[in-house]
Amino acid sequence: MTIEPTGNQTITDRETGTDIVKRGLAQMLKGGVIMDVVTPDQAVIAEQAGAVAVMALERVPADIRAHGGVARMSDPGLIREIMAAVSIPVMAKCRIGHFVEAQILEAIGVDYIDESEVLTPADERYHVAKHKFRIPFVCGCRNLGEALRRIGEGAAMIRTKGEAGTGDVVEAVRHARTVLGDIRRLQTLPEEELVAFAKEIGAPLELVRETRALGRLPVVNFAAGGIATPADAALMMQLGVDGVFVGSGIFKSDDPARRAKAIVEATAHFDNAEILAKVSENLGAPMTGINVSRLEAGERLAERGW
């Protein structure tokens, strides 16, 4: 039986681009893996492996690092091809503060915009005013203050930055521990100390109050930057993040399809060591990686954004 419209059971029209709708998509990505891809073929591999979304890029962070130069928004043609290749959500990056790149990504119709420190910042003082956009934004952070500043600007999802393109998970751990630790500290504070705390971390007071009441960020919080193995993904999940971004870690490894699938399985079963052992077998070599402690200060992408 095909259903015939019968009408008039609702009383208001559709509202798009509201906070609940923008934050809601991130809620539906929880427990999942978002993978960087640079071609439609890679996007299909990611979808087949079970990625919840893909990040459409011209170069993965490891190559951005290697090539140097100014890293910008990807070619809209490439982003459209990737959108056409898969049925899962497609994200794309704009430079920090580059609201015109963001407008272009909105016009293309991507599902999420990542205002990302992986690209070269376009503005050294101001991030994009994100409330104006119908498309939701995800932004990076290293601590609670940075997370709440971005949410105050309209970010509907947060990711801890880690250090992209390194394959070294140490910064991802540092940033996740810092954000989650800041929240635990906030929860122990008496009411009268909240204004001073908000001032100290440079965050809007209302969001500080909301975070304290919720015991977590008011939006979904993924980990990013250096995750290269199933164990890395499960480590971040056990620390308490809602899901993971894997950038260079998949397509810079020996067997991307296999590694992608294993990281998806490890993220779903992050607290089951037997499953983690099984999915970690015979994956071939991970990306070679760069030890973060050897990076010069100027080479650290996480320090971009404020």
Binding site: T10, R14, E15, T16, V21, L25, P89, V110, D111
Partner: peptide, 9 residues
């Protein structure tokens, strides 16, 4: 896509 996601009553 996400741009068309909506709330209604």
């Amino acid at each position: 896509r996400q741009a068309d996601s909506f709330v209604t009553h």
